[in-house]
Design a protein around this nucleic acid. Sequence first.
DNA 1: CTAACGTACAACCATATGGTTGTAGATGAG
DNA 2: CTCATCTACAACCATATGGTTGTACGTTAG
Lengths: 112, 112
Amino acid sequence: MTKAERTDLLFHALSDATRRDIVRLVLQGEHSVSDLARRYPMSFAAVQKHVAVLERADLITKHQRGRERIVRGRIDSVRDVNRLLDELEANWRNRIQRFGDVLAGPDEGEHS
Amino acid sequence: MTKAERTDLLFHALSDATRRDIVRLVLQGEHSVSDLARRYPMSFAAVQKHVAVLERADLITKHQRGRERIVRGRIDSVRDVNRLLDELEANWRNRIQRFGDVLAGPDEGEHS
DNA sequence: CTAACGTACAACCATATGGTTGTAGATGAG
DNA sequence: CTCATCTACAACCATATGGTTGTACGTTAG
């Protein structure tokens, strides 16, 4: 998977309020898929799909405990998203830097 | 528009590589829609749609100059996304804090 | 004025998305 | 063992998404 593809998955996963809430919950502590499903006004299968989207984006991990699947948040992936945004910001800073360079540059050609 | 709806729009807008690249470009400097369209292997109308998605999410602004529409990036919206992620991370930190509290808490009930 | 350019927008299409219900397989409780 | 619980997964549906082409309109260059 390319970096762009993974980035697509990350942002797409976070573009839904239910999924963001699930991430919030499982960063606070462990929850089974059923635990999560009880919280939202939709079917178990729907929540299952949301969890699958988050898993594909590496925002959560699932592991079995008895008959339950325990969901945990992966804080490092949330931070990856932060880093991706910083890369966008960096371009903005570079632009500002260049703009500043012009202002602070040698007075060539000014006043003719 | 609710906060969640705006957050949906922000993350959705950033979930596409072409759109992220457009944001990167227009944070560096101004570009007309045609300028942008020339860069990508898709029709002008397709790029136009991407720009519209970014505009709806407030990640860019458009203003007319002659017959061109100039696109500029809105760095503050990129930072809004950063802030939203920090809110998710905050829940994680709270969890760690509580975990630390337990470790550092009064030795009640221990050793019977 | 006229032609070329930049843009907007509608119509259309294939596929993805987010939801549903239903079925079936593991697993734990009693 | 038997039953209830938790999960997985398929099939289905309505709508959203990302692309296309075509048409129309404002603006500038010559």
